[in-house]
Write a protein that binds this DNA or RNA. Structure first.
Lengths: 173, 173
DNA sequence: TTTTTACGTCAGCTATATTGACATAATTCT
DNA sequence: AGAATTATGTCAATATAGCTGACGTAAAAA
């Protein structure tokens, strides 16, 4: 192949961007690998992990809100959620104002597993963040944030607000 | 719950680290979503994408090397690879020195699809990188790099070296 | 010549997701 | 009060992507 000066290499084939695409792929592969190995011991999969994680983050989450976060169908959710309910890691209570709603909460057992999973994934980030300045941490958050679809950001922002509120409620003095 | 001053919140439950875990999840979800939508038009899935991507990056990749990158079993690979061979997006040639090896190459059609997929994923990164200084870009690469398992980094490094070499070979003046 | 390596393939299984249809109870609208 | 909508649950069928185990073949290495 002969290079032509008038036809610069498009960015989509730029070596550095391709490298980033791959690094992102490998990083995610290893990131979820941690949890996958742990979940195997309990006979659960990634789908269970996601439920445990988001219910831990926002106790009292409704089915609709969870579906919105996970972006899967209710049938997909239900198969996995049912297992977690049966094995008493999650419990659902009717909403106090709207009794059609099922609000999800983790049991003690569920919470312990969620914490264990959070611990192992947090450890990876901590290891990474330890070598970073405050400014670099800000940049990393900003980088990941801007990787998210623009039209999804409001929902992500809202989720994080809710999660933060739950967090403060459960840790206030 | 009553906060106890002698029991600080462990980092695994630190609000900021949990936020990073979630941002990483959402970012990856949207990142692969781009390609997923495109692949649907062709009746392919993520597994096909990965093969197309890595063979595009390193033409002449052997089955063993590809398995090493993807970290799946040869049976899993074969089902998908066979489709790509049948539909003539990939072709395999016996290795010149070791004729047991099957070296993989993309056909013109395969290469066009691989480029289209790279374009859409690169676009996301470009949009993100456009607002970043050179230093911030370096940091982003470093951040993703350190998210990868330490024992996997040599292999990733090696892959990137190989890919870069292929890239230069195909773009040299 | 024997053994090992690189790869292909068959069969059966699991996990995660999908669409479509239908059911039920609770809330809201008219 | 009755009708429509909403939140959720459930059944059935299907697709994709992975797995293990077993067996086969051709080529290379010992």
């Amino acid at each position: 192949m002969i290079a032509r000066e008038d036809e610069p290499i498009p960015a989509s084939q730029d070596s550095d961007v391709l490298e980033l695409i791959e690094l992102f792929f490998f990083a995610y592969r290893d990131f979820v690998g941690d949890a996958d190995r742990l979940l195997e011991n309990y006979g659960f999969g990634r789908a269970h992990h996601r439920i445990l994680h988001f219910v831990q983050r926002r106790p009292g989450l409704s089915i609709a809100a969870l579906l919105d976060i996970l972006q899967i169908t209710k049938q997909s959710l239900n198969r996995v959620l049912k297992q977690l309910l049966d094995e008493k890691l999650v419990e659902s209570r009717a909403g106090p104002s709207d009794r059609r709603q099922r609000l999800l909460y983790l049991t003690h057992t569920g919470s312990e597993l969620a914490k264990e999973l959070a611990r192992i994934q947090a450890a990876r980030f901590e290891r990474v963040l330890d070598n970073m300045s405050w400014k670099e941490k800000e940049n990393a958050i900003e980088f990941l944030y801007s990787m998210i679809d623009e039209d999804q950001r409001p929902q992500v922002r809202q989720h994080l607000r809710h999660a933060k509120a739950s967090f403060i409620r459960n840790n206030e003095t």
